[in-house]
């Protein structure tokens, strides 16, 4: 079964968002199907992170339809959205520095989930995550604040997975970390995908995005300018030049 015939998990349409009086997003529409990895691309300030935050309910002012698993989640508080099975990994890591690795994972823990058809969703335990991120397994009692940037990046993903999300929103995973860590992140995303996880990520690094994703949306000044398969985007140098300034 290919991803394109899988059911739609997240369906966003007519999404508008503001920071203060500044209008940032204009009628953004996108969808994610089960099992897909989707990249939301565009330059800095194009509205990628804003889109993810708006979906998550983290903005004080946004409008539009955000349909997740057939339910409208627009206007819900972030914790309610998270409890419905949307996991969010922020761009600036935001791990809890005073808490140990184990405690950090504990903050993300939610009960196991089922899909609508009754089948069990991926169910993560600390041990399973330590297997996926061997580095973390070796430092379970270390405080978050004493970890390197790359390790924190792994921890923030693991913490979100503890909520057994049905869809993960991953904000700029490659920003500000060494290339070798970016590569690990790519491997990690591919490993999750192989287990059937669905991911919507915002990304500026075109090389990274095309390594990991099936489809892409390109944002410019808060509007979707392009959508299509990653393969098509790879060959569309016009779009790349115009909006990704590659």
């Amino acid at each position: 079964m290919t991803a394109s015939v899988n059911p739609i998990l997240l369906d966003v349409s007519g999404l508008n968002a503001w920071y203060g009086a500044a209008h940032i997003l204009f009628d953004v529409a996108l969808n994610v199907r089960r099992g897909e990895v989707i990249s939301l691309m565009g330059r800095n300030g194009a509205g990628k992170s804003t889109t993810l935050k708006a979906i998550m309910g983290l903005l004080s002012r946004s409008e539009g339809q955000i349909n997740f698993l057939g339910q409208d989640i627009a206007g819900k508080a972030p914790f309610q959205v998270a409890r419905m099975g949307l996991g969010f990994v922020p761009e600036d890591r935001r791990i809890f520095p005073d808490l140990t690795v184990t405690e950090n994972l504990e903050t993300g823990r939610q009960a196991p989930r089922q899909w609508a058809d009754g089948s069990a969703a991926l169910n993560w335990t600390p041990d399973a995550l330590y297997e996926l991120f061997p580095n973390l397994g070796r430092m379970q009692d270390r405080r978050g604040g004493q970890m390197s940037g790359g390790e924190q990046q792994m921890l923030t993903v693991a913490r979100t997975l503890m909520g057994n999300p049905l869809l993960v929103l991953l904000d700029e995973p490659s920003e500000g970390v060494a290339p070798v860590i970016v590569e690990q992140m790519a491997h990690m995303i591919l490993a999750l995908k192989a287990r059937g996880a669905s991911i919507l990520l915002s990304e500026q690094n075109f090389h990274f995005a095309r390594l990991v994703s099936d489809r892409a949306y390109v944002l410019e000044k808060g509007q979707i300018m392009y959508e299509g398969s990653m393969q098509d985007l790879t060959h569309n140098s016009e779009i790349q030049r115009a909006y990704l300034s590659v």
Binding site: S174, P179, E183, L190, H207, L211, M230, T234
Partner: peptide, 18 residues
């Protein structure tokens, strides 16, 4: 690392990875 995320890898490598 392998430079996958900052240099243009040859096309087949990408296809193989996904």
């Amino acid at each position: 690392g392998n430079g996958l995320t900052f240099e243009h890898p040859p096309e087949p490598a990408v296809a193989a990875r996904i």
